[in-house]
Design a protein around this nucleic acid. Structure first.
Lengths: 211, 211, 211, 211
DNA sequence: AATGAATGAGGTTTCATTCAT
DNA sequence: CATGAATGAAACCTCATTCAT
């Protein structure tokens, strides 16, 4: 039995604790995208969430805790993406992946998304608690990615080499966010063609013991 | 060449203006890597540089100017890298590039380097002045990269497609910095093998008009 | 009328927002008279108001806003003065004006008042925002003064000349504040006699086309 | 024997100590008119005087001493003005005075002049050293003014009343500087007519024991 | 439980003054 | 003597956090 529940009377039911946390997180996201972690003040967040400053402290111990929760939240999105692929039969998998590229480009080149991700990564680069969250999420993501690669490339032998291949694919997707900053006006049409070709190779190219 | 000069006597010569600027930039770098741009206070920087706060303002108009100088400084490094390649004869170029991969990995996976770069990029994502510097540098880098690609792949027709290929190569290098945060303990040996293989393909794979 | 209200219990009621603004303005006035606008630091003002520095910024956007509020506050005093004269019947107006001279002298020769006014004017001489406030107030004051002159001197024809006469009367009152600095120990009794005589002439002397 | 003198050789002779002081004062004046006493930094002044900061401290103990010297300098101007009048024969005196009005208006309504004067007066209102200088200058000015009044109005009996009359005339001139701030766009033509008429009255109106 | 006013340390920046060269 | 780089105190302002109401 939680503290929410029991509407019944005329007043609107109090939202659950989790719902309010989410509400705060979403407000924070909007603020952070606008001004970065350090630029977003608790007052901004409170105003954006239409709450008082004080109440935020009932849901999060401090500002850092909000940041950590935001980072953790990204997991959900990522899992959803992989779940979609998992539901795709092997013979259509490559096709679906290539179709995904268009959305991936749009998503990664969206300044809002990349700005936030870079903010998080820069924070992770020096805040061990954030780093731990990012890395934990990444472990999960790699595991899911490994499954995908195995389905596409059953003949791959050495798991270390396959992991490396996965890393490289990861680099391309992650690097897209940096390219979005450094060269926001890329020709996305040409990029899409190029990426589809390269991805096809990356997902299917046989392993090859170096030298 | 500069206005200082004339050491010779027992006293240590006054360092040149440029030397002091570099001194401040290096101190700032150490602080920024430790705590980020916003986390590094002018007092921290001054302490790190063993200077008074005020003197820093004789060399930089404000904190943002230091950031800009740091970003601009990266240009020199990048140019040096391309200059090295430019001096390499065509027949050895691919070989040298592949050898470079090892250093690239070491460099990008060095937390000091990637933390700083991400900091800069996150700042660029919101600060138009920093964005302008980053993008100007990138234009130059792309131009140099284009030259490299043309030497390696003279048969490439559509320049848009070749630029896209260059973007993708850029994604891999840029993305490496993010992977360095998300998965710092990658098996670098396997990664090196994989990257060499992939790069060889990327640099030489013929263009291919989609669908 | 305001949002506070409900004292009644033993605890002291929270002062209204407006009351706190006034409290800050009064503290600022004391500081400014002591050390001028630039000499009065926010820390001084906070100490004088027995508040923390930060709280002042909840009531005023910045130091300049406090200055502007002080200037604006003077308007109220000025309007009250004219309102008093407006309520006086024509036949007693000159008499009341001459009686006012004594208070005017006391007011303008009070170092507190003149120091503040000069501070404001010096600021207005350089700060366009303050100048705008001062000039807006003056427009209003001239309009009121014009009405007064018309009542005292209905035969005055050329409005430009009457305005000039008003300007000259203004010079005398404004100049008094400067004399208060340059010669604080004037014989005020003699001054009062002289001013009454001069004012009577100024208010009633017929216009006279030049030469 | 002072430290200047002895040019003779090919190099340009070193300016006298007094000349350099004047040079600094003039540079300071330009700075102060531009930005006020507090706004004019020693660095600004040094740059304006084309000197190094350090050398200024060989001529003035500190910034306040420069301010004091500027105030004291105004004496010279004022004395020159009275000297001109002293040289005028009685029968033309009033005429010359009235002619002076036009220059007086132009001078007092010049924002540069009034801004500086108000700056000085505001400073005098709280800095006893500056107040002393201002007041000493005023004593001298009043003495000269008294002579002028006596020449124009030999029948005036009570010296206290005559001094009061002088004060009032002073108010008009001083007040003009404040009007220049509060109402910079006065109709100066009309003002000139009005002032001439009023001045004529003020300089010649017989004394009159009040009530 | 919710509010939002208050705190005050700490941020960036300026500048009068000194002093080694 | 002149220089101008260096100092460091102090200016204004912000904001995470607390707590009386």
């Amino acid at each position: 039995m939680t503290t929410d529940a029991l509407p019944a009377d005329g007043t609107k039911p109090r939202p659950s604790r989790e719902a309010r946390r989410q509400h705060i997180l979403e407000a924070t996201l909007r603020c952070v995208r606008r001004s970065g972690f350090h630029g977003a003040s608790m007052a901004d967040i409170a105003a954006e969430a239409k709450m008082s400053v004080g109440v935020i402290y009932r849901y999060f111990a401090n500002k850092e805790a909000i940041i950590e929760a935001i980072v953790a939240n990204d997991l959900a999105e990522m899992r959803a993406k992989f779940a979609e692929w998992d539901a795709t039969p092997d013979e259509r998998l490559m096709e679906v992946l290539l179709e995904t590229m268009e959305h991936a480009i749009a998503h990664k080149y969206d300044p809002d998304n990349s700005a936030l991700a870079l903010e998080v990564l820069a924070e992770a680069a020096r805040n061990p608690r954030v780093a731990a969250i990012v890395q934990a999420a990444d472990i999960e993501e790699r595991e899911l990615g490994r499954g995908l690669c195995r389905r596409l490339n059953p003949g791959f032998g050495d798991p270390a080499l396959m992991d490396a291949r996965g890393e490289i694919i990861g680099m391309i997707f992650d690097g897209m966010m940096i390219r979005a900053i450094s060269n926001p006006h890329t020709d996305r049409k040409a990029l899409l063609l190029g990426l589809r070709q390269v991805m096809q190779v990356l997902f299917t190219m046989p392993e090859c013991r170096g030298d």
